[in-house]
Design a protein around this nucleic acid. Sequence first.
RNA 1: GCGCCUGUAGCUCAGUUGGAUAGAGUACCAGUUUCCGAAACUGGGGGUCACAGGUUCGAUUCCUGUCAGGCGCACCA
Length: 586
Amino acid sequence: MKDQLRHIIETTLTQLIAQNSLPALTLPEIQIDRTKDKSHGDFACNVAMMLARSAKMNPRQIATLLVDALPETDFITKVDIAGPGFINFTLSADSAQQVVKTILAEGEQFGQSDLGAGQSVQVEFVSANPTGPLHVGHGRGAAYGSAVSSLLKAAGFKVHREYYVNDAGRQMDILATSVWLRYLETCGETFIFPSNGYKGAYVSTIAENLKFAHGDAFLAPTVDVFDGVVADEPAGGDKERHIDDLISNARRLLGEDGYRHVFDAGLNAILADIRQDLSDFGTDYDEWFSERSLMETGVVDDAIDALKKAEMLYEKDGAWWFKSTEFGDEKDRVVVRDNGQTTYFASDIAYHLNKYQRGFDTVIDIWGSDHHGYIPRVKASLTAMGKNADRLKVLLVQFAVLYRGSEKVAMSTRSGQFVTLRELRDEVGKDAARFFYVLRGADQHMDFDLELAKSQSNDNPVYYVQYAHARVCSVFRQLSERSLTWDKVEGEKQLTRLTEDHEQALLSMLSRYPEVINTAATNYTPHLLAHYLMDLARDFHTYYNAHQFIVEDQPLSQARLTLITAVKQVITNGLSVLGVSAPETM
RNA sequence: GCGCCUGUAGCUCAGUUGGAUAGAGUACCAGUUUCCGAAACUGGGGGUCACAGGUUCGAUUCCUGUCAGGCGCACCA
């Protein structure tokens, strides 16, 4: 509808210029906005004001010229000039009703567009280290990432959802060693567990399973395990060196195969848990991409070679540095350490090179906002390798602060005192959790009230929207109880009977849905959709309270049933994009 | 110290890419059921859009500065 208006205005303006009614000038982008106020019609255009300066004419004068020259159309009934020079359009009743037929005809497809024209987008999100269960911070990334993915898909993009598995690096070595130490404990060895190790109960569970499956195969005496190990911090030593020494002892005592076995036991168990957890949360991926594979297939070496060839690396203090300052970063960054090991950053350069090589038109990374300082160096590496860094979009997600009523829930990763995503799901449910997460802009700090999310009251926005859907279903249950039926064909014929203000408002709201999807998709802002659904639900509840749908007047009744069926469809579609269910009963 | 993000009603937050009289929810107050589900609806009060300049027909929105809060500044991941 906006496009049609835009087209008409554009052609009329060029016509006016051709007739010398307007001076020759380049036309600006024609903006068509929905009006905030019903008295201003349905759509407004500000082009007269935008042209006033370059045409050296009064905006109202331009508007008058334009309006007089506009051709007759069947979908516009009224054109007004208002305020400083706004041109307001009022839709004909017929074209306003048309949206209901469109919704019923397109069903689940309604709202989808070809805006993306099949361009491919890769969306990488969550990507938490597989060193423990996901917590509520990851939950927001999961809800946001999958909502953005669904939005892009609805807007006609080819979407590839990916989880980057950090299955290499020091943190994973710490996990492997933690598993091994717990395993030794189940074998009867006794020692003080390292302060920097992973102490969660899940580590012991993995160790017990290892013991069950392999008996004493990985056993080593405690004296050997702690041989030459620097004292731990509580004992007056250094906790980092303490754990690093334990790791190298583990490697030595277990041998390459044994160490890899223990390592993979930890990795696989936790990864399986994460996959299940995300799947239960309604977040699914097209690919789980292994960091280790980047090293094993030589992509990391390739990336380093590419940078060397481009003369973007130099050697200093035994390490290889990337000249990221040449691209606006604060300082140069190490990619190969003096001990020959590549850094996490080197893997990430390789990973992004690989993403580009796979040919995605756009690459989206969704990170916790605490990683924002990382953006310049990743973009720098892409530029240095001759890639267009603008194809990479990094979206940041702020952490959510949990509240129970007005009480802040204490959380700290260090003490291991975090609320897991699974606990959140168990407490408030998948639907409420997802909806709450996407209710706010991702870059906004967010207060997540557990009490509110699980309350079955009018305070809770999730239920508010779902209830609107259930209410429509309930009306149809009532209909069949009275042995009546809904006749779609008849209903569509009678749409002209929808003349009440509430019905007009609903029609207008329904027609906005495709625009909301496109705006939310292009801006990566699912919260716009969440808010739209609340607005739609409110218009519906208001309508419900003001009017009966099942009435004696059969044509009217059919028209109303047709309208609320369209409402039900749009709520279903919108909630589905957000990964929230649309229940028939509450 | 430098960089990024944020500052809108008592509280939690929107604000259609610069538009008309700045909006919801919640809380508070007052109402609505012989009627399809009251998990709903109607009405009311509540604002220096942090502050000060600038850009223009027009600024909550864009630019600069100040103040306040969050985060980040590793040969960790």
